[in-house]
Design a protein around this nucleic acid. Structure first.
Lengths: 311, 311
DNA sequence: TGACATGGATTGAATTAAGCTATGGACAAG
DNA sequence: CTTGTCCATAGCTTAATTCAATCCATGTCA
């Protein structure tokens, strides 16, 4: 078995066409055909099913190609390691965070990283968990910050901190009279939610099942209003459209004074989420993980509880 | 770059000797020397430092070899996938658990797995976290059950359940009068601990810092008695040597009647541990993980709280 | 139905890479 | 100064890879 053969089967699996795959690999079609046949004989299974007018993957082939991709990635990483020399903290790092973390973590994290790894330029992105996951797996991102639970094949995760949720109220709201708020108090309130796809939306609904949006209108407005970001929701809370639930790191960073907005904590059991790092298991720069881990723990996120560190 | 070259550098890194490495690879010494030189030229770095009387790894070389090992493992897995054919649930699985989980989980888990994956013979082991980790990394185990926190390079973890701790008392003990017990109640008690190396020992000490063992003797016995397993500790509790803290799954499975032993829950905050699966990120049988996950969730562990599943 | 197009398999020659034996050269020990 | 160790180099052989040319099965359309 050679890396070349693995490249060939990955190409055919991608192109679904021997000729095109051969072109993509810069070899002739017979070369590729022979190489694949040789590999199939060595492995004792047929990877592709040559139909009359199409090439498809056999069930085993599917998994073989997946595994081959991993092997190729690992081999590529050998080159990367050699390229970047001994300093893992040199060279760019592509980092992603979900929408409900990025805006509140990055302003703390990035200055920290500039200090601890000045030779590591950062490419930074915000997106949904699903998009970040895809980009991470495709190698378009190196490390992402998401909320647990999170389990993906060949992705390593590392919990960072537990983040309690808080309630954001207009200052004039009756609930501001309470010192802490239970999820039952939210049942009759108009709780503004993020749109579908935001995992924080699901976290809130889990903590407050009664907040599940109902179809229909109240006056001109839909029964439940969905915001496209925590900041738009904050504006709507100010404007009196309703109240909302925020992760605590998002509670402080805003431009409204206490005369307009009030924050109240939850009474026990306090709903919360666990924020974690995730990276490809094959990511070849362990020190980068350590540095980011340390940097986040060094961030001034006063309301969170850091998870005990890596051993 | 070829897999053969990677095998060569891994061998030299292991043997620290070109000649011996060549023998281990079943090739002549010049073959190996040339191949390594070629790879070093391709990568543009020198992997080994040829000293007068010894071969050592350069700093970059160290990481290159590590990465090479990963690539070789991934390539091996291609063969494994082909070998076991389309059925990931066929072929033996080597599973490990720490001492404080295995005896209580296996009797539930193994019959479950026999049902859901009858063609998968199980090789089962119990050991300390550190030993299991080493065996997992070396490929001597496929999947292990440990307690969080757990973070190892290129190991994937998946939380399974939260397990509250309980207090085990002789039936005649004054604390049996209480419905629930707080850690402060343990301060003046003789709390029997597991020996060093058991992570559960550390969990107990974290929940009850006052229980940290003090040197010295009480009469003939050491001030703090350490047991080699939860079962030996249970015997000692029966015999009146002291009380102990157990994970709740270990509380029920014993041969003593309620007339001798009493179990009491903790009052809030209830100390607990999170039990998780861990496997090499390169482990090529994702369905096996799913099946074990499902099997454990199907176990009759009434006292635990299962963590939300994989998405 | 038959000419043609498509797409993978086969063939055989040319090239390249990987392997071996023999030898060279640096270094340390005696 | 000799000897032994150990990695590097040279020259040769053999095996593997690649390509162009060709074959063959299948599907399309007049």
């Amino acid at each position: 078995m050679t890396l070349t053969e693995l490249r060939y089967i990955v190409a055919v699996a991608r192109e679904r066409h021997f000729g095109k795959a051969a072109k993509a690999c810069h070899v002739s079609q017979p070369t590729l055909s022979v190489a694949i046949k040789k590999l199939e004989e060595e492995l004792g299974v047929s990877i592709f099913e040559r139909g009359s007018n199409e090439v498809s993957l056999s069930p085993v082939g599917e998994r073989i190609v997946q595994q081959a991709q991993q092997a190729l990635e690992a081999a590529d990483n050998v080159k990367q390691v050699a390229l970047h020399g001994k300093n893992q903290l040199a060279g760019p790092l592509r980092i992603g965070a979900i929408y409900t973390i990025g805006p509140y973590l990055y302003p703390e994290l990035i200055p920290q990283l500039r200090k601890s790894a000045p030779e590591m330029p950062l490419v930074v992105e915000e997106n949904y968990t699903s998009v970040l996951t895809e980009k991470l797996k495709q190698g378009e991102l190196d490390i992402i910050v998401i909320a647990l639970p999170y389990a993906e094949q060949s992705i390593v995760t590392q919990p960072l901190y537990d983040e309690p949720f808080v309630v954001l109220l207009p200052a004039s709201h009756p609930l501001t009279a309470r010192k802490s708020i239970s999820s039952v108090h939210l049942e009759d309130e108009n709780v503004l939610l993020l749109g579908r796809g935001h995992c924080f939306r699901d976290h809130v609904l889990e903590a407050c099942p009664a907040c599940i949006p109902k179809p229909g209108l109240i006056g001109d407005l839909p029964h439940t209003i969905e915001g496209s970001s925590l900041e738009t929701i904050r504006h709507m809370v100010v404007s009196g459209l309703g109240i909302t639930v925020l992760p605590c790191t998002a509670a402080g960073a805003h431009s409204y004074s206490q005369r307009l907005l009030t924050i109240r904590r939850f009474s026990s059991p306090i709903p919360h989420r666990t924020v974690a790092l995730a990276w490809r298991a094959s990511f070849p720069r362990p020190k980068v993980i350590d540095v980011i881990n340390t940097a986040i723990r060094g961030c001034n996120l006063s309301c969170v509880k850091y998870v005990r560190g890596r051993k």
